[in-house]
Amino acid sequence: MIRTVLSAEVEDIVALHARARVTYYPDGLPQDGTDWVAAWQSAVARPDGHVLCVVEEGRIIGLASFRTPEGAPADTVKLFQFHVDPDHWRSGVGSALHAACVEEWQADGRRTAVLDVHVDNRRAQAFYARQGWIPDSENPPAEDDHHLNLRFSVTGK
């Protein structure tokens, strides 16, 4: 089942977020001082954003967080977080969650989606490519940035 995350589920989201992110950091998850509980509470509470989750047997196994980024056109949405529990990779969970995001973006009149993905996260890059994401030529990464910027046509054009 895919649905909106509840505020009471933030601890579960933080745990899933950590399990997924640690897989593409060769030296383990960086300790950069980010309070992920507060960050996810804010994402869930934002009136201008949305956090979807995939629930299987009462457990959250996938999540996606998106909203219009500051300064972007109203028809653009940014996918800020997209994670699937590593135990469920290659099972269709990510594709189903992505399809639910696209359906919501289309219903909201979005035309373009953007995201950035860590350069070491080859698995995610391959997943996004399969979904139709392409490098964002209008937004190349800064020289010291460790992320690739991708773009997706919500309308398919």
Rank of each mutant, 00 (worst) to 15 (best):
D145Y: 03
G92Q: 05
T23K: 00
G156V: 09
H147W: 04
E104D: 13
R59I: 15
G49M: 06
T4V: 14
A64S: 05
Q41D: 15
S91W: 08
A64Q: 01
A100F: 11
P69W: 04
W36V: 04
G94T: 05
S65P: 06
Y25W: 03
S137M: 11
L29C: 10
Y24S: 00
A126M: 08
G156I: 11
Y24M: 02
S91A: 09
A107M: 09
M1Y: 10
P47L: 14
T155A: 11
E143L: 12
G71S: 04
R3N: 10
L79D: 02
P30T: 01
G109P: 06
F82N: 05
K157C: 14
L16V: 01
V119Q: 13
A39M: 09
S42Q: 12
R67E: 14
Q131L: 10
A100L: 14
V5L: 07
A129T: 01
H98I: 09
Q41S: 12
R19S: 11
A96D: 12
L79M: 03
A142S: 10
D27P: 09
V14C: 13
P73L: 08
D75M: 04
V5W: 02
A15W: 03
S95Y: 05
L79Y: 00
S42A: 14
N149H: 15
Q41E: 15
V77H: 02
Y25S: 05
T4E: 11
G58F: 13
A45E: 13
D12L: 10
H98Q: 11
A107R: 08
V55W: 00
G62Y: 15
P30M: 13
L79A: 02
G94N: 04
S7I: 07
